[in-house]
């Protein structure tokens, strides 16, 4: 296993008090695998990524265990984290303009990562920069290396970000909405590039996106988050064909699909609860059309609902109960009611 999150929770200080933003996140990424994280705005996708990278706001309280290559990195010092960031793991953000330094040429920014993490000499670094720019599909690499971020288009900047991230051949690459700010034709180029790099480098990738089309196209496995918790996990085909959690179902029904014209889209009524007013039971309860009495008061455990397919919903607790060995009497009753 390349990356393993075990019961990770994160609390952030808001208006003087701690609010739990992530609650018991457990997920895994294998070598060469792309795992998608989807969910509504504010559900904690970025915070999950930033917890792994330990790029958290001040006074953040992180609990649980995060292992990279079987090493517990939660206990790493700041310095040690700095060393593995950009080296063993790297991250790409939605807006390349805010993560690139406007005052330095793009060549220099790529080179800086190489200075920080490799023993290459100046000559070798220059060559590696050109090589990287070529790898991410930028023409005229020589010229582009001496240009500044604002001189490049959005798609080119995102390619530079990818080049920076790839500079040290990280084993884990985290992408937070890498194509959201791009036009579809440019997004297609970047996704194509990422698919290619993934095949070549055997990286593990976390792909955070709100676009289920992107998920279907690049991910092997999907993690669905809702209000700071994981509600479902499955391989990509299984998730799209056989979604189990009512939230996932609602999400899939609400997207208009190219080539399919429907009179009416599905939709999920209501809105996401805010982190400081989380309901006691299932966090989806208020918006769920299958909700039962048990859902209101008690948080549903993660149940196995198929092969490597889990969902946190009382509808499935009967089956999950057998497999988990936990008694599911409440859930059983609930299922019967349904």
């Amino acid at each position: 296993m390349l990356l393993e999150l075990n019961d990770v929770s994160l609390s952030l200080k808001r208006d003087g008090k701690y609010v739990k933003i992530l609650d018991g996140i457990s997920l895994q990424v294998k070598k060469g695998e792309t795992v998608g994280i989807v969910g509504e705005s504010g559900c904690g996708k970025s915070m999950t990524a930033l917890s792994v990278m330990r790029l958290l706001p001040e006074k953040a309280k992180l609990e649980g265990v995060i292992q990279l290559d079987h090493e517990d990195i939660t206990s790493y010092s700041k310095r040690k984290m700095e060393k593995i960031r950009g080296n063993k793991m790297a991250m790409i953000f939605q807006d390349p303009l805010t993560s690139l330094n406007p005052l330095h040429t793009v060549g220099r920014q790529i080179e800086e990562t190489l200075i920080l993490h490799t023993d290459l000499n100046k000559e070798q670094r220059k060559r590696r920069v050109i090589e990287l720019l070529n790898e991410v599909g930028l023409p005229r690499a020589d010229e582009i290396a001496s240009e500044y971020p604002h001189q490049l288009s959005g798609g080119m900047r995102q390619r530079i970000m990818i080049a920076v991230a790839m500079a040290c051949n990280p084993s884990l690459l985290i992408c937070d909405e890498p194509t959201t700010a791009l036009d579809v034709t440019v997004q297609a180029q970047i996704l194509d590039l990422m698919n290619h790099l993934k095949d070549v480098n055997e990286m593990g990738i976390i792909m955070i996106t709100h676009d289920l089309g992107v998920v279907a196209e690049v991910c092997d496995r999907v993690v669905v988050m809702y209000a700071g918790k994981i509600v479902e996990q499955a391989n990509v085909k299984e998730l799209f064909i056989n979604p189990k959690h009512p939230y996932t179902k609602g999400l899939l029904e609400s997207i208009p699909k190219l080539g399919v014209k429907k009179a009416k889209l599905g939709s999920i009524p209501g809105m996401v609860p805010s982190p400081d007013k989380m309901p006691k039971g299932c966090r989806f309860y208020e918006r769920c059309s299958s909700a039962m009495e048990v859902c209101k008061g008690t948080t549903p455990p993660m149940s196995s609902v198929g092969e490597e397919h889990t969902a946190a919903c009382w509808l499935y607790e009967e089956k999950g109960g057998e497999m988990n060995g936990s008694s599911g009497s409440e859930g059983l009753e609930a299922t019967l009611h349904n």
């Binding site: 579809v184 194509d192 676009d211 089309g213 085909k237 799209f240 997207i255």
Partner: peptide, 25 residues
């Protein structure tokens, strides 16, 4: 044609031939 093939489709069972345009607008 390029625009339509560039749209990622939320259906992992469908693999399409994609026309990838070079360059930017």
């Amino acid at each position: 044609k390029a625009l339509l093939t560039a749209v990622p489709i939320p259906d992992p069972t469908k693999k399409r031939d994609r026309i990838i345009l070079q360059g930017d607008l």
